[in-house]
Design a protein around this nucleic acid. Structure first.
Length: 473
RNA sequence: GCCCCGUUCGUCUAGCCAGGCCUAGGACACAAGGUUUUCAUCCUUGCGACAGGGGUUCGAAUCCCCUACGGGGUGCCA
Protein backbone atom coordinates (compact mmCIF):
# COMPACT_ATOMS: atom_id res chain seq x y z
CA UNK A 1 0.00 0.00 0.00
CA UNK A 2 2.85 2.37 0.68
CA UNK A 3 5.44 3.22 -1.87
CA UNK A 4 8.37 5.54 -1.77
CA UNK A 5 8.10 8.62 -3.90
CA UNK A 6 10.64 11.33 -3.67
CA UNK A 7 11.79 9.69 -0.48
CA UNK A 8 8.38 10.24 1.05
CA UNK A 9 5.64 7.95 2.14
CA UNK A 10 2.86 8.02 -0.35
CA UNK A 11 -0.05 5.61 -0.37
CA UNK A 12 -0.78 3.62 -3.44
CA UNK A 13 -4.25 2.52 -4.27
CA UNK A 14 -5.20 0.34 -7.17
CA UNK A 15 -6.52 2.18 -10.19
CA UNK A 16 -9.57 3.03 -8.17
CA UNK A 17 -11.05 6.52 -8.31
CA UNK A 18 -10.48 8.48 -5.12
CA UNK A 19 -12.19 11.82 -4.76
CA UNK A 20 -12.37 14.10 -1.80
CA UNK A 21 -14.63 16.72 -0.38
CA UNK A 22 -12.63 19.16 1.71
CA UNK A 23 -14.82 21.73 3.41
CA UNK A 24 -13.87 24.23 6.00
CA UNK A 25 -16.53 24.03 8.69
CA UNK A 26 -17.28 27.63 9.37
CA UNK A 27 -20.96 27.39 10.23
CA UNK A 28 -23.84 26.93 7.89
CA UNK A 29 -23.53 24.88 4.72
CA UNK A 30 -23.88 26.76 1.48
CA UNK A 31 -25.78 25.24 -1.40
CA UNK A 32 -22.65 25.42 -3.54
CA UNK A 33 -20.70 23.50 -0.92
CA UNK A 34 -23.45 20.91 -0.87
CA UNK A 35 -23.31 20.64 -4.63
CA UNK A 36 -19.56 20.11 -4.60
CA UNK A 37 -20.09 17.37 -2.04
CA UNK A 38 -22.89 15.88 -4.09
CA UNK A 39 -20.96 15.73 -7.35
CA UNK A 40 -17.96 14.19 -5.64
CA UNK A 41 -20.27 11.68 -4.03
CA UNK A 42 -22.04 10.91 -7.29
CA UNK A 43 -18.76 10.45 -9.08
CA UNK A 44 -17.48 8.10 -6.40
CA UNK A 45 -20.68 6.08 -6.42
CA UNK A 46 -20.82 6.03 -10.19
CA UNK A 47 -17.28 4.78 -10.61
CA UNK A 48 -17.21 2.52 -7.59
CA UNK A 49 -14.50 4.73 -6.13
CA UNK A 50 -14.03 6.19 -2.69
CA UNK A 51 -15.09 9.53 -1.28
CA UNK A 52 -12.78 11.00 1.31
CA UNK A 53 -14.08 13.67 3.64
CA UNK A 54 -11.26 15.90 4.77
CA UNK A 55 -11.81 18.72 7.18
CA UNK A 56 -9.87 21.88 6.44
CA UNK A 57 -9.86 23.26 9.94
CA UNK A 58 -6.59 25.14 9.97
CA UNK A 59 -8.31 28.37 10.89
CA UNK A 60 -8.74 27.77 14.60
CA UNK A 61 -10.80 30.88 15.17
CA UNK A 62 -13.60 30.02 12.86
CA UNK A 63 -13.70 26.25 13.06
CA UNK A 64 -15.71 25.21 16.06
CA UNK A 65 -16.92 21.77 16.95
CA UNK A 66 -20.50 22.96 16.64
CA UNK A 67 -19.81 24.09 13.10
CA UNK A 68 -18.33 20.70 12.27
CA UNK A 69 -21.37 18.90 13.65
CA UNK A 70 -23.61 21.13 11.62
CA UNK A 71 -21.67 20.30 8.47
CA UNK A 72 -21.75 16.55 9.09
CA UNK A 73 -25.46 16.72 9.87
CA UNK A 74 -26.13 18.49 6.63
CA UNK A 75 -24.25 15.87 4.64
CA UNK A 76 -26.03 13.06 6.41
CA UNK A 77 -29.38 14.68 5.90
CA UNK A 78 -28.70 14.85 2.19
CA UNK A 79 -27.70 11.21 2.28
CA UNK A 80 -24.10 11.87 1.27
CA UNK A 81 -22.03 9.37 3.15
CA UNK A 82 -18.24 9.24 3.00
CA UNK A 83 -15.97 6.24 2.85
CA UNK A 84 -13.10 7.73 4.79
CA UNK A 85 -12.98 10.66 7.15
CA UNK A 86 -14.40 11.82 10.47
CA UNK A 87 -16.41 9.19 12.36
CA UNK A 88 -15.46 6.41 9.94
CA UNK A 89 -11.68 6.65 9.89
CA UNK A 90 -9.51 5.26 7.12
CA UNK A 91 -5.91 4.34 6.46
CA UNK A 92 -4.62 7.71 5.25
CA UNK A 93 -5.78 9.78 8.18
CA UNK A 94 -5.88 11.85 10.21
CA UNK A 95 -8.66 13.52 8.26
CA UNK A 96 -8.45 16.83 10.05
CA UNK A 97 -5.82 19.18 8.74
CA UNK A 98 -5.27 20.49 12.22
CA UNK A 99 -3.83 17.05 13.08
CA UNK A 100 -1.57 16.66 10.08
CA UNK A 101 1.22 19.00 11.14
CA UNK A 102 3.93 16.30 11.02
CA UNK A 103 3.05 15.41 7.47
CA UNK A 104 3.23 19.03 6.39
CA UNK A 105 6.62 19.38 8.11
CA UNK A 106 7.89 16.31 6.28
CA UNK A 107 6.82 17.71 2.93
CA UNK A 108 8.07 21.18 3.71
CA UNK A 109 11.48 19.77 4.51
CA UNK A 110 11.55 18.03 1.16
CA UNK A 111 10.85 21.28 -0.61
CA UNK A 112 13.59 22.98 1.37
CA UNK A 113 16.04 20.21 0.60
CA UNK A 114 15.27 20.58 -3.07
CA UNK A 115 15.86 24.29 -2.86
CA UNK A 116 12.26 25.07 -3.69
CA UNK A 117 11.39 26.97 -0.52
CA UNK A 118 12.80 30.04 1.11
CA UNK A 119 12.05 32.30 4.01
CA UNK A 120 11.08 35.92 3.66
CA UNK A 121 9.36 38.31 6.07
CA UNK A 122 8.92 35.43 8.50
CA UNK A 123 6.94 33.37 6.04
CA UNK A 124 8.04 30.52 3.81
CA UNK A 125 7.59 30.92 0.08
CA UNK A 126 7.47 28.37 -2.69
CA UNK A 127 10.12 29.09 -5.26
CA UNK A 128 9.11 29.02 -8.89
CA UNK A 129 11.62 27.99 -11.53
CA UNK A 130 12.70 30.45 -14.17
CA UNK A 131 14.39 33.73 -14.85
CA UNK A 132 13.51 36.50 -12.40
CA UNK A 133 12.69 40.10 -13.19
CA UNK A 134 10.96 43.04 -11.57
CA UNK A 135 7.90 44.67 -13.02
CA UNK A 136 5.40 47.29 -12.01
CA UNK A 137 2.08 45.65 -11.18
CA UNK A 138 -0.99 47.74 -11.69
CA UNK A 139 -3.13 45.72 -9.33
CA UNK A 140 -0.70 45.99 -6.45
CA UNK A 141 0.40 49.47 -7.46
CA UNK A 142 3.99 48.49 -6.85
CA UNK A 143 7.03 46.86 -8.37
CA UNK A 144 6.93 43.11 -7.83
CA UNK A 145 9.29 40.27 -8.55
CA UNK A 146 8.10 37.91 -11.24
CA UNK A 147 9.39 34.69 -12.71
CA UNK A 148 9.45 33.62 -16.34
CA UNK A 149 8.02 30.17 -15.76
CA UNK A 150 6.97 27.53 -18.19
CA UNK A 151 3.19 27.36 -18.53
CA UNK A 152 1.44 24.45 -16.85
CA UNK A 153 -1.36 22.49 -18.43
CA UNK A 154 -4.31 21.67 -16.24
CA UNK A 155 -6.17 18.56 -17.30
CA UNK A 156 -9.82 19.33 -16.70
CA UNK A 157 -12.64 16.95 -17.54
CA UNK A 158 -15.18 19.72 -17.89
CA UNK A 159 -13.11 22.37 -19.63
CA UNK A 160 -10.49 20.43 -21.51
CA UNK A 161 -6.86 21.43 -21.10
CA UNK A 162 -6.37 24.81 -19.52
CA UNK A 163 -3.00 26.48 -19.83
CA UNK A 164 -1.89 28.96 -17.22
CA UNK A 165 1.33 30.42 -15.98
CA UNK A 166 2.18 31.15 -12.38
CA UNK A 167 4.56 34.07 -12.20
CA UNK A 168 4.99 34.94 -8.55
CA UNK A 169 6.33 32.91 -5.66
CA UNK A 170 3.62 32.27 -3.13
CA UNK A 171 3.40 31.65 0.59
CA UNK A 172 3.29 28.04 1.75
CA UNK A 173 3.80 28.66 5.46
CA UNK A 174 2.54 31.83 7.03
CA UNK A 175 4.61 33.84 9.44
CA UNK A 176 2.47 32.54 12.29
CA UNK A 177 3.63 29.02 11.43
CA UNK A 178 0.42 27.80 9.80
CA UNK A 179 0.84 26.13 6.44
CA UNK A 180 -1.21 27.79 3.73
CA UNK A 181 -4.20 26.40 1.90
CA UNK A 182 -2.37 25.71 -1.36
CA UNK A 183 0.34 23.78 0.34
CA UNK A 184 -1.78 21.60 2.60
CA UNK A 185 -4.28 21.02 -0.16
CA UNK A 186 -1.65 19.52 -2.42
CA UNK A 187 0.13 17.59 0.33
CA UNK A 188 -3.15 16.10 1.45
CA UNK A 189 -4.20 15.18 -2.06
CA UNK A 190 -0.84 13.46 -2.56
CA UNK A 191 -0.84 11.62 0.74
CA UNK A 192 -4.45 10.63 0.45
CA UNK A 193 -4.02 9.26 -3.04
CA UNK A 194 -6.61 11.54 -4.61
CA UNK A 195 -7.07 10.81 -8.31
CA UNK A 196 -9.72 13.39 -9.25
CA UNK A 197 -10.24 16.83 -7.84
CA UNK A 198 -13.77 18.06 -8.36
CA UNK A 199 -14.28 21.55 -7.04
CA UNK A 200 -15.68 24.97 -7.83
CA UNK A 201 -14.50 27.07 -10.72
CA UNK A 202 -13.22 29.66 -8.26
CA UNK A 203 -10.27 27.30 -7.73
CA UNK A 204 -9.29 27.16 -11.37
CA UNK A 205 -6.83 30.07 -11.16
CA UNK A 206 -5.29 28.44 -8.07
CA UNK A 207 -4.73 25.22 -9.88
CA UNK A 208 -1.57 26.33 -11.60
CA UNK A 209 -0.09 26.84 -8.13
CA UNK A 210 -1.17 23.37 -7.20
CA UNK A 211 0.25 21.82 -10.34
CA UNK A 212 3.57 23.58 -9.70
CA UNK A 213 3.61 22.05 -6.24
CA UNK A 214 2.80 18.58 -7.57
CA UNK A 215 5.65 18.91 -10.03
CA UNK A 216 8.01 20.04 -7.29
CA UNK A 217 7.13 16.90 -5.33
CA UNK A 218 7.57 14.77 -8.41
CA UNK A 219 3.99 13.58 -8.30
CA UNK A 220 1.62 13.48 -11.24
CA UNK A 221 -1.24 15.94 -10.60
CA UNK A 222 -4.76 14.56 -10.33
CA UNK A 223 -7.34 15.03 -13.03
CA UNK A 224 -9.35 18.14 -12.34
CA UNK A 225 -12.97 19.03 -12.92
CA UNK A 226 -13.85 22.62 -12.18
CA UNK A 227 -17.55 23.14 -11.99
CA UNK A 228 -19.30 26.41 -12.64
CA UNK A 229 -20.55 28.58 -9.84
CA UNK A 230 -24.09 28.94 -8.61
CA UNK A 231 -25.05 32.52 -9.30
CA UNK A 232 -27.56 34.79 -7.63
CA UNK A 233 -31.01 35.20 -9.05
CA UNK A 234 -30.49 38.19 -11.37
CA UNK A 235 -33.45 39.90 -9.73
CA UNK A 236 -31.52 39.84 -6.47
CA UNK A 237 -28.12 40.92 -7.69
CA UNK A 238 -24.94 39.96 -9.48
CA UNK A 239 -22.20 37.47 -8.87
CA UNK A 240 -22.10 34.14 -7.14
CA UNK A 241 -24.68 33.22 -4.60
CA UNK A 242 -23.66 34.19 -1.12
CA UNK A 243 -24.72 32.62 2.12
CA UNK A 244 -26.89 35.59 2.81
CA UNK A 245 -29.04 34.99 -0.27
CA UNK A 246 -32.42 33.40 0.10
CA UNK A 247 -32.29 29.69 -0.45
CA UNK A 248 -28.52 29.56 -0.14
CA UNK A 249 -28.28 27.47 3.02
CA UNK A 250 -29.19 23.82 3.15
CA UNK A 251 -30.18 24.25 6.79
CA UNK A 252 -33.04 26.29 5.46
CA UNK A 253 -34.39 23.32 3.52
CA UNK A 254 -33.90 21.11 6.51
CA UNK A 255 -35.84 23.47 8.71
CA UNK A 256 -38.57 23.88 6.17
CA UNK A 257 -39.03 20.12 5.89
CA UNK A 258 -38.05 19.87 2.27
CA UNK A 259 -37.32 16.35 1.16
CA UNK A 260 -33.57 15.71 1.07
CA UNK A 261 -33.90 13.68 -2.12
CA UNK A 262 -35.67 16.64 -3.73
CA UNK A 263 -32.94 19.03 -2.64
CA UNK A 264 -30.33 16.64 -4.00
CA UNK A 265 -32.28 16.32 -7.24
CA UNK A 266 -32.57 20.07 -7.63
CA UNK A 267 -28.96 20.79 -6.80
CA UNK A 268 -27.85 18.16 -9.28
CA UNK A 269 -29.86 19.93 -11.95
CA UNK A 270 -27.88 23.10 -11.38
CA UNK A 271 -25.19 22.69 -13.99
CA UNK A 272 -25.91 19.11 -14.91
CA UNK A 273 -28.72 17.52 -16.81
CA UNK A 274 -29.77 14.03 -17.73
CA UNK A 275 -29.92 13.69 -21.48
CA UNK A 276 -33.36 12.23 -21.65
CA UNK A 277 -35.66 15.02 -20.47
CA UNK A 278 -36.50 13.23 -17.26
CA UNK A 279 -35.77 15.72 -14.53
CA UNK A 280 -37.40 14.22 -11.49
CA UNK A 281 -34.93 11.60 -10.44
CA UNK A 282 -34.32 9.43 -7.42
CA UNK A 283 -30.86 9.20 -5.93
CA UNK A 284 -30.26 5.89 -7.69
CA UNK A 285 -31.35 7.29 -11.02
CA UNK A 286 -29.01 10.21 -10.45
CA UNK A 287 -26.07 7.90 -9.86
CA UNK A 288 -26.94 5.87 -12.90
CA UNK A 289 -27.06 8.85 -15.24
CA UNK A 290 -24.40 11.06 -13.76
CA UNK A 291 -21.32 11.86 -15.78
CA UNK A 292 -18.76 14.55 -15.09
CA UNK A 293 -18.43 15.24 -18.78
CA UNK A 294 -22.02 16.47 -18.85
CA UNK A 295 -21.44 19.35 -16.47
CA UNK A 296 -22.29 22.79 -17.75
CA UNK A 297 -19.39 25.20 -18.15
CA UNK A 298 -21.36 28.37 -17.47
CA UNK A 299 -22.68 29.43 -14.10
CA UNK A 300 -26.20 28.45 -13.12
CA UNK A 301 -28.73 30.69 -11.52
CA UNK A 302 -30.66 29.52 -8.53
CA UNK A 303 -34.43 29.45 -9.01
CA UNK A 304 -36.50 28.80 -5.93
CA UNK A 305 -39.67 28.17 -7.92
CA UNK A 306 -38.05 25.23 -9.61
CA UNK A 307 -36.77 24.01 -6.27
CA UNK A 308 -40.35 24.01 -4.99
CA UNK A 309 -41.55 22.24 -8.07
CA UNK A 310 -38.99 19.47 -7.73
CA UNK A 311 -39.93 19.11 -4.08
CA UNK A 312 -43.58 18.88 -5.07
CA UNK A 313 -42.88 16.14 -7.56
CA UNK A 314 -41.03 14.15 -4.93
CA UNK A 315 -43.81 14.79 -2.39
CA UNK A 316 -46.40 13.36 -4.73
CA UNK A 317 -44.40 10.22 -5.23
CA UNK A 318 -43.84 9.57 -1.54
CA UNK A 319 -45.19 6.26 -0.24
CA UNK A 320 -47.48 6.53 2.81
CA UNK A 321 -44.84 5.39 5.28
CA UNK A 322 -42.50 8.16 4.15
CA UNK A 323 -45.17 10.80 3.77
CA UNK A 324 -47.29 10.42 6.88
CA UNK A 325 -44.74 10.85 9.70
CA UNK A 326 -43.29 14.18 8.55
CA UNK A 327 -46.76 15.37 7.55
CA UNK A 328 -48.09 14.64 11.01
CA UNK A 329 -45.13 16.27 12.62
CA UNK A 330 -45.67 19.42 10.55
CA UNK A 331 -49.28 19.55 11.71
CA UNK A 332 -48.47 18.95 15.33
CA UNK A 333 -45.73 21.58 15.22
CA UNK A 334 -48.42 23.98 14.03
CA UNK A 335 -50.61 22.91 16.94
CA UNK A 336 -53.33 21.49 14.72
CA UNK A 337 -53.17 17.91 15.88
CA UNK A 338 -52.03 16.02 18.94
CA UNK A 339 -52.19 12.51 20.36
CA UNK A 340 -55.93 12.73 20.82
CA UNK A 341 -56.57 13.39 17.14
CA UNK A 342 -58.42 10.55 15.45
CA UNK A 343 -55.70 8.67 13.57
CA UNK A 344 -57.95 7.39 10.84
CA UNK A 345 -59.38 10.84 10.16
CA UNK A 346 -55.91 12.35 10.19
CA UNK A 347 -54.72 9.81 7.67
CA UNK A 348 -57.62 10.43 5.33
CA UNK A 349 -57.07 14.19 5.44
CA UNK A 350 -53.39 13.79 4.74
CA UNK A 351 -54.00 11.51 1.79
CA UNK A 352 -56.39 14.07 0.38
CA UNK A 353 -53.74 16.77 0.57
CA UNK A 354 -50.72 14.87 -0.70
CA UNK A 355 -51.30 15.46 -4.39
CA UNK A 356 -51.85 19.17 -3.90
CA UNK A 357 -49.14 20.57 -1.66
CA UNK A 358 -45.56 21.28 -2.69
CA UNK A 359 -44.06 21.09 0.77
CA UNK A 360 -44.77 19.98 4.30
CA UNK A 361 -44.39 23.61 5.16
CA UNK A 362 -47.54 24.40 3.19
CA UNK A 363 -49.56 21.67 4.86
CA UNK A 364 -50.80 23.42 8.02
CA UNK A 365 -52.31 26.40 6.26
CA UNK A 366 -53.65 24.13 3.55
CA UNK A 367 -55.49 21.84 5.91
CA UNK A 368 -56.17 23.79 9.11
CA UNK A 369 -59.94 23.76 8.67
CA UNK A 370 -59.99 19.98 8.88
CA UNK A 371 -58.89 20.14 12.47
CA UNK A 372 -60.41 23.27 13.88
CA UNK A 373 -63.49 25.40 13.43
CA UNK A 374 -61.30 28.38 14.02
CA UNK A 375 -59.70 28.77 10.63
CA UNK A 376 -58.89 31.92 8.73
CA UNK A 377 -61.22 33.15 6.03
CA UNK A 378 -59.76 34.47 2.82
CA UNK A 379 -61.30 37.91 2.35
CA UNK A 380 -60.88 37.88 -1.42
CA UNK A 381 -62.75 34.64 -1.87
CA UNK A 382 -65.36 35.78 0.60
CA UNK A 383 -65.99 38.97 -1.25
CA UNK A 384 -66.12 37.30 -4.61
CA UNK A 385 -68.57 34.61 -3.60
CA UNK A 386 -70.81 36.39 -1.18
CA UNK A 387 -71.48 39.34 -3.38
CA UNK A 388 -73.56 37.01 -5.48
CA UNK A 389 -77.18 37.84 -4.83
CA UNK A 390 -78.17 34.19 -4.50
CA UNK A 391 -75.42 33.15 -2.12
CA UNK A 392 -77.58 32.99 0.98
CA UNK A 393 -80.34 31.22 -0.87
CA UNK A 394 -78.04 28.54 -2.31
CA UNK A 395 -76.55 27.81 1.06
CA UNK A 396 -79.97 27.58 2.67
CA UNK A 397 -81.01 25.05 0.05
CA UNK A 398 -77.92 22.97 0.51
CA UNK A 399 -78.36 22.52 4.24
CA UNK A 400 -81.45 20.26 4.23
CA UNK A 401 -80.20 18.47 1.12
CA UNK A 402 -77.00 17.43 2.85
CA UNK A 403 -78.39 17.09 6.34
CA UNK A 404 -80.91 14.50 5.20
CA UNK A 405 -78.43 12.30 3.39
CA UNK A 406 -78.51 8.68 4.38
CA UNK A 407 -74.83 8.13 3.75
CA UNK A 408 -72.56 11.12 3.67
CA UNK A 409 -70.11 10.23 0.93
CA UNK A 410 -68.84 11.87 -2.24
CA UNK A 411 -71.30 10.15 -4.56
CA UNK A 412 -74.34 10.91 -2.43
CA UNK A 413 -73.35 14.51 -1.97
CA UNK A 414 -72.95 14.92 -5.69
CA UNK A 415 -76.31 13.31 -6.35
CA UNK A 416 -78.01 15.54 -3.81
CA UNK A 417 -76.54 18.73 -5.22
CA UNK A 418 -77.28 17.60 -8.72
CA UNK A 419 -80.91 17.02 -7.76
CA UNK A 420 -81.01 20.48 -6.32
CA UNK A 421 -79.56 21.89 -9.50
CA UNK A 422 -82.10 20.10 -11.65
CA UNK A 423 -84.93 21.32 -9.48
CA UNK A 424 -83.83 24.95 -9.62
CA UNK A 425 -82.70 24.67 -13.22
CA UNK A 426 -79.22 25.75 -12.28
CA UNK A 427 -75.75 24.33 -12.76
CA UNK A 428 -74.08 22.38 -10.07
CA UNK A 429 -71.49 25.12 -10.21
CA UNK A 430 -73.93 27.42 -8.39
CA UNK A 431 -73.24 25.45 -5.20
CA UNK A 432 -69.73 24.05 -5.40
CA UNK A 433 -67.63 27.14 -4.81
CA UNK A 434 -69.98 28.26 -2.04
CA UNK A 435 -69.81 24.91 -0.32
CA UNK A 436 -66.05 24.95 -0.43
CA UNK A 437 -65.89 28.42 0.96
CA UNK A 438 -68.45 27.66 3.67
CA UNK A 439 -66.50 24.71 5.03
CA UNK A 440 -62.93 25.90 4.48
CA UNK A 441 -62.90 29.68 4.18
CA UNK A 442 -60.80 29.52 1.04
CA UNK A 443 -61.28 29.17 -2.68
CA UNK A 444 -58.99 26.24 -3.29
CA UNK A 445 -58.03 22.96 -1.76
CA UNK A 446 -58.43 19.24 -2.21
CA UNK A 447 -61.09 17.87 -4.54
CA UNK A 448 -64.38 19.11 -3.15
CA UNK A 449 -66.49 15.97 -2.92
CA UNK A 450 -64.00 13.74 -1.13
CA UNK A 451 -63.12 16.70 1.03
CA UNK A 452 -66.73 17.11 2.16
CA UNK A 453 -66.97 13.39 2.75
CA UNK A 454 -63.86 13.45 4.89
CA UNK A 455 -64.95 16.47 6.88
CA UNK A 456 -68.15 14.61 7.65
CA UNK A 457 -71.74 15.64 7.92
CA UNK A 458 -71.53 17.35 11.30
CA UNK A 459 -68.76 19.72 10.38
CA UNK A 460 -70.17 20.46 6.96
CA UNK A 461 -73.71 21.13 8.09
CA UNK A 462 -72.79 23.19 11.10
CA UNK A 463 -70.43 25.34 9.06
CA UNK A 464 -73.10 25.86 6.42
CA UNK A 465 -75.57 26.88 9.08
CA UNK A 466 -73.11 29.24 10.64
CA UNK A 467 -72.47 30.94 7.33
CA UNK A 468 -76.18 31.09 6.54
CA UNK A 469 -76.84 32.72 9.89
CA UNK A 470 -74.18 35.33 9.35
CA UNK A 471 -75.57 36.10 5.92
CA UNK A 472 -79.07 36.59 7.26
CA UNK A 473 -77.94 38.81 10.04
C1' G B 1 -4.86 46.71 -15.23
C1' C B 2 -3.42 41.55 -16.01
C1' C B 3 -4.71 36.21 -16.20
C1' C B 4 -8.28 32.22 -16.63
C1' C B 5 -13.23 30.45 -17.68
C1' G B 6 -17.74 31.22 -20.01
C1' U B 7 -22.18 33.21 -23.38
C1' U B 8 -28.93 28.65 -26.61
C1' C B 9 -36.15 30.95 -24.46
C1' G B 10 -37.13 35.38 -18.15
C1' U B 11 -34.71 30.80 -15.46
C1' C B 12 -32.51 25.51 -15.58
C1' U B 13 -31.06 23.13 -19.87
C1' A B 14 -30.84 19.42 -24.80
C1' G B 15 -28.18 19.95 -29.25
C1' C B 16 -21.94 21.70 -29.91
C1' C B 17 -16.54 17.53 -29.04
C1' A B 18 -17.49 13.67 -34.30
C1' G B 19 -21.10 20.67 -39.21
C1' G B 20 -26.63 18.90 -42.62
C1' C B 21 -31.86 14.83 -38.96
C1' C B 22 -32.69 22.23 -35.72
C1' U B 23 -38.73 25.84 -39.43
C1' A B 24 -33.49 24.70 -32.20
C1' G B 25 -36.26 19.93 -28.13
C1' G B 26 -37.65 19.49 -22.76
C1' A B 27 -38.58 21.59 -17.78
C1' C B 28 -39.77 25.86 -14.37
C1' A B 29 -42.29 30.42 -14.61
C1' C B 30 -46.01 33.14 -17.22
C1' A B 31 -50.71 33.45 -20.35
C1' A B 32 -55.21 31.33 -22.45
C1' G B 33 -58.56 27.33 -22.65
C1' G B 34 -60.29 22.51 -20.74
C1' U B 35 -61.36 18.79 -16.81
C1' U B 36 -70.54 19.01 -16.95
C1' U B 37 -66.94 20.42 -10.38
C1' U B 38 -63.79 24.34 -6.84
C1' C B 39 -58.25 24.29 -6.88
C1' A B 40 -52.47 25.32 -5.42
C1' U B 41 -53.38 19.28 -8.82
C1' C B 42 -54.14 17.30 -13.89
C1' C B 43 -54.60 17.96 -19.54
C1' U B 44 -54.09 21.09 -24.02
C1' U B 45 -52.30 25.27 -26.40
C1' G B 46 -49.57 29.68 -26.49
C1' C B 47 -45.38 32.90 -25.34
C1' G B 48 -40.25 32.52 -25.80
C1' A B 49 -33.43 31.80 -27.32
C1' C B 50 -28.52 30.15 -30.84
C1' A B 51 -24.86 37.83 -27.59
C1' G B 52 -22.91 40.84 -32.09
C1' G B 53 -19.61 40.89 -36.27
C1' G B 54 -16.32 38.56 -39.51
C1' G B 55 -14.44 34.13 -41.61
C1' U B 56 -14.06 28.49 -43.14
C1' U B 57 -17.77 25.47 -45.82
C1' C B 58 -22.24 23.50 -50.84
C1' G B 59 -24.08 23.96 -45.70
C1' A B 60 -22.61 26.55 -38.84
C1' A B 61 -26.18 26.90 -32.72
C1' U B 62 -22.23 23.47 -33.86
C1' C B 63 -15.25 24.87 -36.38
C1' C B 64 -11.79 29.60 -36.33
C1' C B 65 -10.99 34.96 -35.19
C1' C B 66 -12.52 39.68 -33.16
C1' U B 67 -15.79 42.63 -30.14
C1' A B 68 -19.30 42.99 -26.29
C1' C B 69 -21.12 41.12 -21.97
C1' G B 70 -20.98 37.75 -17.61
C1' G B 71 -18.17 34.93 -13.94
C1' G B 72 -13.74 33.80 -11.28
C1' G B 73 -8.83 34.99 -9.73
C1' U B 74 -5.02 38.36 -8.92
C1' G B 75 -4.30 37.51 -0.12
C1' C B 76 0.85 35.51 5.02
C1' C B 77 -8.51 33.56 3.12
C1' A B 78 -10.13 28.80 1.99
Amino acid sequence: MIREAFGLTVPRFMSQVRVRFAPSPTGSTHIGTARTALFNWLYARKTGGKLVLRIEDTDKERNTDAALQELLNGLKWLGLNWDEGPEVGGEVGPYFQSQRGDIYQEYLQKLKDAGRAYEKDGAIFFKLEGERYTEYDDYHKADVEKVKTQPVVIEDIIRGNVTRREERDFVIVRSNGDPSFHFVNVVDDITMGITHVLRGEDHLPNTSKHVELFKAFGVKPPVYAHMAMILKDPKVGKGKMSKRDKGALIEEYQNRDFLPEAVVNFIALLGWSPKDDQEVLSIDELIERFDLKDLQKAGARFDEKKMSHINFEHMKRLPADKYLPPAISALSKAGLVDDSTDQDYLKRVLELCQQKIDSFEALPSFSAYFFSDDYTVDPKTEKKLLKRADAAERIQEAIPALEGLETFDAASIETAIQALADEKELKIFAWFPLLRFAVSGVGGGPDLLPMLETLGRDRVVSRLKKLAASLNA
